[in-house]
Each structure stands twice: as C-alpha cells, then as structure tokens.
C-alpha cells in the first residue's frame, strides 16, 4: 500500500500528511484549500516525488470545460482528412485525444493527478465530473469504448475558495484546509530553502514578517513565497539582524502594493501603535 511520508524539500504538517494518507487509502480525491502561498500545488509534486509516481497536472481556467479533461473528438481534423484522404477516416479512434483526466485513467501505472485551482472554472464544472471522479471511468460514445482506470489515480484538487464548490462534489472528497504556518513550522520551511541561514537573522526577520501579517488593512498579505524572496534579498544584501531590527529593508519584496507599503512604513515608525489604530475594532 502507498504510504506518503513526506519529502525532504517539502515541510508538511502531521495533520496534512495524515489526510493525504487517508485520501490514498480511501481512494477519494483530496481537496486542499488555503491562502495563496501555503504550498497547495507543491503538495501534489511532493506526493508524486515521495511515492515515486508520475504527476499529471490539469490547470483549470475560467473557460475549461469538464469534457476537455476526458477526451476531445477532433472533428475538424477528420473532416480535413476526409477531403484529402490522407488517413483512414473510418478509424475514429485516431481522432479521439485524451484529456488529462482520460490520460490518468488510461495509464497502466498509478499516477498522481493534480487538478489545480478548480474554483477558477464555471460553477457547474465540478458537478460535471461527479460520476467520472466517483467511478474513475467514462464512456466515449464515438468509439463505443469505456475508459476505466485500472489503478485509481491519487487525485489532489486545489481551490482558492473563489467560488463555493457544490455539495455533492464535496461529499465525495476529503477536505483539508492549510492554515498559514506558525513561526516554528515556518522556521523549518525556511531551513529547507536556506540551510545555512543565521539563526538570529531568521528570528528577527520572522518577527517582522509576522508583525506585517498582523495588519488587517493590507490588500495582499505577504505569503511564504514572498518571505523566501525577502530572505534571499537579505542574505544577498549582507544585511545583519541589527538592521532588520531597526527597519525593514527591501520592503518591496514582501509587499506588492504601494498602499500596503505606505501603511507599514507609516506605522513602522511608531512601532507599537499599530495594535490599536490599524485593526478594525469591534465597536459594539
């Protein structure tokens, strides 16, 4: 049986690892939700690597239709061939092109299938896939063929909760909400990227990082990837922890909006004032 233990380059919480294994054991898709930059997409990469399986990624866009994931019947090509007589057009099979889902089902070995950002698509999209995900099979009427997964793929679905997913779809899945990592876990994550980083610098930088995240008024909160960029800049710039203590260098790598930078810089001067003034207060 497959048991996912995690990989070296991906720090995973115990809860999430348990849930990954539950989803593998129960053969249900795992829906991963959470703030941007909490490593939802990387999880699938890590699982594929950890279990030594091939990864298929299906990126969902706002125009993606469920059918595209299963197969495409290239009628235009067939029409063209019919006119020029290059191929045997009675053989419809050659005009059926498997989509990502179809590819994963048809494969001989077990795969990891990542359906990335499923909430980007139309609201009806997940519902169209209900049966296919449930039974891991679908029927192609053109060739009177049924594609059935020999080995049910490990399905990881990520969502940014832009749209609510329909209940019947959710009922068939395992759900995990990735919380933003706390300081301890974050230290581990940073260590994966920078094994040699100075402890004091990291402490100080993280203190500042979480302080910035406390601001409720930020338009975009800095996430893990921004922290990594920032640390990279600090290391390359040869900034010492004392400088980080005094001010926040390279603020632009953490915050991407001018308004956000203004807010942080303004309150950065009166260090402790942010607590009362910046938060939305419950006045009643």
């Amino acid at each position: 049986m497959n048991y996912f233990k995690g990989t070296e380059d991906y720090v995973i919480s115990k809860d999430l690892r348990d849930n990954v294994n539950v989803s593998i054991a129960l053969q249900r898709p795992l829906i991963v939700k959470g703030e941007p930059g909490t490593g939802k997409t990387l999880l699938a990469h890590s699982i594929a690597k950890g279990l030594g399986k091939k990864l298929i990624i299906w990126n969902i866009k706002s125009t993606t239709k469920a059918q595209e994931g299963l197969y495409l019947y290239d009628t235009v090509q067939r029409l063209n061939d019919a006119r020029f007589g290059d191929n045997d057009i009675s053989d419809i099979k050659q005009y059926i092109k498997m989509g990502k889902l179809g590819e994963a089902f048809a494969s001989e070995e077990q795969l990891v299938l990542l359906i990335d950002e499923i909430d980007k698509a139309d609201i009806e999209f997940p519902n169209d896939l209900l049966n296919e995900i449930d039974e891991m099979s679908f029927y192609i009427p053109e060739t009177k063929e049924t594609i059935k997964a020999k080995n049910r793929p490990i399905v990881i679905i990520t969502s940014n909760s832009e749209k609510e997913l329909p209940d019947p779809f959710l009922r068939r899945c395992i759900f995990h909400y990735i919380e933003f990592p706390e300081q301890e876990l974050m230290e581990e994550i940073v260590h994966v990227h920078f094994p040699k980083i100075e402890k004091k610098l990291l402490r100080e930088a993280l203190k500042k990082f979480y302080w910035i995240r406390e601001f409720d008024m930020l338009r975009k909160k800095p996430s893990t990837s921004e922290l990594i960029d920032w640390l990279q800049a600090l290391i390359l710039g040869g900034i010492s922890e004392k400088d980080v203590e005094k001010e926040i260098p390279f603020l632009g790598t953490l915050l991407k909006k001018k308004e956000d930078i203004d807010i942080v810089q303004k309150t950065g001067k009166t260090h402790y004032a942010y607590n009362t003034s910046m938060r939305t207060r419950d006045v009643y």
Partner: peptide, 18 residues
C-alpha cells in the same frame, strides 16, 4: 488526535464549519 483530524477532513468540507 488523529481521529479528530481525519474525521474533520472527511465530514467537514468548509473551514467556516470548523
């Protein structure tokens, strides 16, 4: 502890219900 986590993953599909 694992039961708490696993049951939540299976039963609850939205963090607003956590």
């Amino acid at each position: 502890t694992s039961f708490y986590n696993i049951a939540r993953a299976i039963l609850v599909k939205n963090e607003i219900f956590f």
